[in-house]
């Protein structure tokens, strides 16, 4: 039972590794954790292209915000 569980975990780990490598190859700039979250969401049925759009959106948001804290810290 536990071996099956551990097998599952290693296999999941391997899959994630592969995907991470792919992501790096494709230059997506995702870290492993976010990638795992995204893959989880995709596995649960989220449209991959929509998710990609979300990531884009969030990154845009983050870049806007990263400009703001610089001014906010002075405040």
């Amino acid at each position: 039972m536990s071996t099956r569980e551990s097998d599952r975990i290693t296999s999941a780990q391997q899959t994630l590794d592969i995907l991470y490598e792919m992501s790096q190859l494709l230059n997506t700039q995702l870290d492993k954790e976010t990638l795992a979250t995204c893959v989880g969401m995709i596995e649960s049925g989220v449209n991959p292209e929509a998710l990609a759009a979300v990531i884009q959106e969030l990154r845009r948001e983050s870049s806007v915000l990263s400009a703001q804290p610089a001014t906010g810290s002075h405040r």
Partner: peptide
């Protein structure tokens, strides 16, 4: 998953 990565790559 691959499509997600690809989309992200092209859009990025």
């Amino acid at each position: 998953s691959v499509l997600f990565l690809h989309s992200l790559a092209t859009s990025s």
